[in-house]
Amino acid sequence: MLDDGKRPLVRVRNLKMHFPIYRGVMRRQVGEVRAVDGISFDIYAGETLGLVGESGCGKSSAGRAILRLYDVTDGEISIDGNEIAHLAGDELRRLRPEMQMIFQDPQASLNPRMTVAAIIAEPLDEHQTLSRNARMERVFELMDAVGLNRNFANRYPHEFSGGQRQRIGIARALALNPKFIVCDEPIAALDVSIQAQVVNLLEDLQEKFGLTYLFISHDLSMVRHLATRVAVMYLGKVVELADSAQLYGDPKHPYTEALLSAVPEPDPTLENTRERIILEGDVPSPSDPPEGCNFCTRCPRVMDICRRESPEFKQLEDGRFVACHLM
């Protein structure tokens, strides 16, 4: 498609994920939480797209919506050319092997009553017809790939440490040879010492199996290390999307600037000169977003227009996308 060989594996257009709010005796719908409110981006084959933002900005909902773990409200999602936004039932299920997810809490995401082997083998049973031996062979292969001792195959998840559990989660995600994996804060629940191991494993696996990642995280430095491109979300919308180097070097959106200013510098001299931009106020409720630009209530450079019109998510000359009236 594109001449530089970059082919969008995942194409998201105007994706909306609204959760209804019910109140009262008759449980009437009184409103909705706009967790994801019209986001659009492409993820190219083999790249890692970082998705960053504060807690509650809708990044996890976006990840789950893209994998169709939710029924999306509106928009288009195509993965490897298959339009999946409004598929259901078996049609959707058949496409599941293409796309997988690695969850934040490895403990909670593994069925406590299943052994490691059963957890990894289950999708194989569902989507492939393998003999017993072949299946076990595949399970061992996957365990090797993520660095788990084969002897642990018959143990239960609670018998493992957090890092090992996340490896189980990864092995499980890899079982069906997916092309696209959503990593939903895969290291947030881990010790710092383990985080690097898991991140390195993800990188190795990406190289080995040619995987495409959507890497959701609030850890900006980890994303900088991992991601090819980075999307910044605020209150259900992507405010800036750029190459990793561009974004970290020269943030365009005031929110990105503020976010990056909060990242501590490893170098103490630089750290001392770092100017933090402190945002005033709280993130507005996603059930009642402000008029105009979502960021207008907290933006240090707010203008009149910001309170009236929602800025367009537009591409700048250098290829990055920004949604801001300043641009």
Binding site: L69, R93, R96, L110, G169, R172, A173, L176
Partner: peptide, 17 residues
């Protein structure tokens, strides 16, 4: 609402399963 149920769905398992 547990994550492992989401995992199971992500595995592409039949809803009944």
């Amino acid at each position: 609402n547990q994550d492992y149920v989401r995992t199971a769905r992500a595995k592409g398992l039949n809803e009944r399963v």
